[in-house]
Write a protein that binds this DNA or RNA. Structure first.
Lengths: 201, 201
DNA sequence: AATTTTAGTTAACAGTGTTAACAAAAGTAA
DNA sequence: TTACTTTTGTTAACACTGTTAACTAAAATT
């Protein structure tokens, strides 16, 4: 009897239509403003049916998170296979990673929990400029007292802040409590590498 | 007449008490679950009074964001002044940055818009492991075909991912639309530095 | 003392996620 | 075909959220 099979198929289609409607909303208004009610409205069903297919709203977002990681992995693997030399592969992967993030912003923000607070505001916060100013001047001083005084300080500042923020936020995503003290080794490693790249060419 | 002055002072105190109550909530339940109603409840006033002191909820969070950047800047400047050599300063600043982030998690998450999605879940997502697996194996291969085969691949993987995520998320916070193509120079710079640190010692 | 200004309140609007209680349709068994 | 059971879907509500209009009571000014 194919009835059971049809039912499973229909259920699967229903589930897919929920995700489709949800994704459409994420694309138009961002995942912050995704709501169960709007999904229900879009698929022209009442609200509780959605809870027959997903435990809660988070489960729907989790689906997209998984999808995002899958797509990213596929993209990375594809460019990796274009090269044989590991160092070339790492470079290609890095560029593919960057491209994925900005071509699929919604996915990326979901995957790494980027809340995007004031977003455009952040730039205008005087206190932030004060902080970054400290970093910038220190880097300028480091460059000035090195062999390679033509180094682009603004580029290096951006790299410096990115490394720090990347290390911190990756650690925060993965662990809830305090980080292992050993994690400072990673910081040490990354920063000493950065400082070398700053002073010698 | 000191009446006007007293009024201003009282208004300032009121404002401060709102922030105090709000911060207490942020500390106990995280800034995600901060609500105007709970603040009003804590200061034992009705809800609309809060809107006499802050335009909206975001304005309250912005206050903490500024406060956070100020505190971070102070912390960085303090450790910077302990050293004279710029490279030492950059190293000290990096460690102070890390320490601040984890000693003041709430501030940091607010400042950089870390939404913290599934948080603990992210680790268990198979699709993420699949992606990171690609990175890890590539790094292992790069190390294997280098002069320094004892390099800690897991440390290097963590650094690699952190650099990438840091670059991407800093860029996303600061710009809304597509990034400047020149920003790829920063990526190029950071990654080539990383690859060097991977193969030569 | 009358009037204006300020401070603070209640009550509502328009949303949100989630769920209990119920009705209708579909499938199963006699 | 009829009676029963299961699935599917709906209505209506609960408990929240940010925000604001309309009003009252207190304080300051004239």
């Amino acid at each position: 009897m194919g009835i059971a099979e049809r039912k499973i198929r229909q259920k699967e289609e229903f589930r897919a239509s929920i995700l489709e409607a949800a994704w459409l909303q994420v694309l138009t208004d961002g995942w912050q403003s995704l709501s169960i009610r709007k999904i229900a409205d879009a698929i022209e069903y009442s609200i509780p049916v959605i809870y027959n297919h997903f435990e809660n709203k988070e489960a729907i977002l989790l689906e997209f998170t998984k999808e995002g990681f899958q797509k990213l992995a596929d993209a990375l693997l594809e460019v990796k296979n274009k090269y044989t030399e590991p160092s070339e592969q790492l470079e290609a992967i890095a560029h593919a990673y960057w491209d994925f993030a900005f071509e699929h912003k919604e996915y990326y923000q979901l995957m790494f929990g980027l809340g995007i607070p004031a977003c455009e505001m952040v730039n205008q916060i005087a206190e932030m400029k004060y902080m970054t100013g400290i970093m910038i001047t220190t880097i300028q001083e480091a460059i000035a007292s090195s062999n390679n005084t033509e180094t682009n300080y603004f580029l290096k500042y951006h790299t410096y802040l990115s490394i720090l923020h990347g290390l911190v936020s990756i650690e925060m995503i993965q662990k809830v409590g305090k980080p292992d003290p050993e994690k400072k080794l990673i910081l040490q490693d990354a920063i000493s590498g950065f400082i070398k790249s700053l002073t010698i060419k």
